[in-house]
Design a protein around this nucleic acid. Sequence first.
DNA 1: ACCTGAACACCGTTCAAGT
DNA 2: ACCTGAACACCGTTCAAGT
Lengths: 188, 188
Amino acid sequence: MTSDTREMIMAAARPKVQAHGYNGLSFRELAKEVGVKSASIHYYFPTKGDLGAALARRYREDAEAVFGRIEQESQDPLKCLREYTDRFRLALENENRMCLCGHMAAEYHDLPEAVRVEVQSFTDLNVAWLTRLLTSIDGFGDARTAEERAIAIYAAVAGAQLVARSGADIALFDNIVESYRTAGLIPA
Amino acid sequence: MTSDTREMIMAAARPKVQAHGYNGLSFRELAKEVGVKSASIHYYFPTKGDLGAALARRYREDAEAVFGRIEQESQDPLKCLREYTDRFRLALENENRMCLCGHMAAEYHDLPEAVRVEVQSFTDLNVAWLTRLLTSIDGFGDARTAEERAIAIYAAVAGAQLVARSGADIALFDNIVESYRTAGLIPA
DNA sequence: ACCTGAACACCGTTCAAGT
DNA sequence: ACCTGAACACCGTTCAAGT
């Protein structure tokens, strides 16, 4: 029995955070968009941290579902890796936004502990999924090697998104990721 | 004839932006730290954008000086590349802060045009310097190849800083950057 | 030339009050 | 159960006023 208003708030807040970050999210703007008063948002999310944590958790759950679908639709791990980087490209296509948790990572100092935990959980999900993909590829039989590479790939793709965004240049993202492949960081 | 107060404002503002970003910078807090009223800051920097642009420009100038020193002290390009990644590590060592322009890159949507230009200029400096280093290493004779790799290295290192920061784990930064080297992204 | 107090419209948060 | 108005201490910005 999830509340409609609660869902509307989260739906309106997500793109705001992807564009402006946690700090840039305004309860009053959000309220105007949803059609309630800003005090009402506090009914569903007592503090901004509660909303931030809920957004990050939901973002991770959605990613989990997407990863599952990718894995199911394609048996080829190299193809899965392409779909993975495409997911990060998608945010840029969408009005030059970035990964919600990537943006929050930059705001680390201003994040309540509950939000930090959820952001870390998103990172963990990405690393675990990439590790599983890599272990099915030649040369990454060792689990520890695969995980180290998984973290590196996640960080590198997040960085590519950040740099491409600051230049508002989606082709730059493509070039950087392609360089990762030719350099051997991402198996291709 | 640079103003002392102006310099004090910039000196106090830089670590604030590295920790909390452009949005997280407060004129009132800044004023308290410097010992003036917030209205006085507007005398030196009419808008927050003016201060942000000045900070980013100064940050780039300082990086330029550091890069010059690194190049001069060591002829070995591989060693220079290690000193380069160490510079990004330094920000994390300093109370888990991040590169000023890296943080601003995430805030792209909220940046006045003048600030965006300076952030881009910082990126350009990094890419130009890395490109020059790479061209003196075997396998990167072609200028275009070297520049593509330079952008990739810059983005990857920025991403490593972002991910390590969100986990407040400096060892993670080291591991990721080391992975970049073993994978072949950064020549070692 | 340099600084300030006061005002403006913003912000997240709280809470008593409404239905 | 759900929403609101009003208040609080914050924010960047403006500007007339001080020295």
